[in-house]
């Protein structure tokens, strides 16, 4: 379908319209523009704690979620890119898909860089990519917005809303604004150099170990990272005696993440775990499999890491170390 574009006086008009058929997330009013929320919408699709099945001693019963239709309203490009990444990872996961099928994605273009974000460096923004959203909001002025319907699902959701088609000049303005926003992002040479160093295996082991010493294994980065998808499972007994298997968000930075029953651990050293994490985010092998890097440039890890080994801190250490070597 060709993208269709309209004028909109305010996002709340769309929001009120959608609220008739969808539960709106987040439930608060106007979407925050230009800065993604600290917590991404990941948990709306890949629940932090989720029942998988119950066992009553004889039968296993699947416990698929059955959510009402919901709209993720005002999602930034980085997080939408992450959802499309997760769509691949969870393509055959019925629990994820049960939620995903009910979700309408309304993106919002960012028009100025956020504090830690670097979406342009990893091809994840700041303008919403058409293939990652159903609808896109773009602010033209305080009283005028563009609304883009990217697919049939998005267009269908607008039914009953009277909208005027947008003209080409405003669509061109959108492109210009996004281009100008990209120019405002600060220097990303440390990221480029870091990515190269990681993929050419140029990061010395002892630098990884130094960074590992700063990893407190808090799980903050993996909890907030919109593309982290590792989970563990456990069984719990219900009050009626049934066994319930639940999955929960796990973190590859825990020492016990890969510890085997024999106590052998292939990634016993914290540095090895930190290296694995960044290799998963910036490794070319992962990029081949998913069509892009695992990092979407949201910068949340930089904020939430108590040990100062979020993305910018790590990449600056790696790139300055590489320069010293040269």
């Amino acid at each position: 379908m060709k993208i269709q574009s309209f004028y909109l006086n305010h996002p709340n008009t769309l929001r009120d319209h959608l609220a008739k058929s969808y539960r709106i997330e987040p439930p608060q009013a106007a979407p925050g523009q230009n800065t993604p929320p600290l917590v991404s919408p990941k948990g709306q699709l890949f629940a932090e704690h989720e029942n998988l099945f119950t066992f009553d001693g004889e039968c296993f019963r699947e416990t698929l979620p059955n959510p009402e239709p919901f709209a993720l309203f005002g999602v930034q490009s980085c997080d939408l890119t992450a959802i499309s990444y997760q769509d691949q990872f969870f393509a055959n996961d019925p629990y994820y898909q049960a939620r995903r099928q009910q979700a309408l994605l309304i993106g919002i273009d960012c028009l100025s860089p956020c504090q830690h974000g670097f979406c342009p460096s990893v091809n994840a923004g700041p303008g919403v990519k058409h293939e990652t959203a159903d609808l896109i909001l773009h602010q033209l002025s305080t009283t005028s917005w563009l609304l883009l319907a990217c697919n049939q699902k998005g267009l269908g959701a607008l039914e009953g809303l009277s909208l005027n088609p947008a003209n080409q000049p405003e669509l061109n303005d959108r492109d210009d604004r996004i281009a100008s926003c990209i120019e405002q992002f600060s220097d990303d040479s440390h990221l480029k150099q870091g990515i190269t160093a990681i993929n050419q295996n140029q990061v010395p082991e002892d630098l990884w170990q130094q960074l590992g010493l700063q990893c407190l294994s808090c799980s903050g980065c993996t909890s907030l990272c919109p593309t982290c998808s590792c989970y563990g499972t456990w069984e719990q007994q219900e009050s009626n005696g049934d066994i319930r298997r639940q999955r929960f968000w796990d973190s590859c930075l825990y020492e016990s993440f890969q510890r085997e029953a024999s106590q052998h651990n292939p990634t016993e050293k914290a540095g090895e775990r930190v290296k694995r994490f960044w290799t998963h985010k910036f490794g070319d092998n992962f990029a081949k499999e998913f069509g892009r890097y695992g990092c979407v440039g949201c910068g949340r890890c930089e904020v939430t890491c108590p040990g100062v080994i979020g993305v910018h801190s790590v990449m600056k250490r790696i790139s300055s170390d590489a320069q010293l070597d040269n």
């Binding site: 917590v39 629940a47 407190l216 939430t304 108590p306």
Partner: peptide, 24 residues
């Protein structure tokens, strides 16, 4: 169902430790 850090808190500034993240 979940806990999240507060970005505007004067001490923790968007951070929690392993215990905090597991409060639920």
């Amino acid at each position: 169902i979940s806990v999240e850090p507060q970005i505007d808190h004067p001490i923790s500034r968007g951070q929690l430790c392993a215990k905090g993240w597991s409060s639920a």
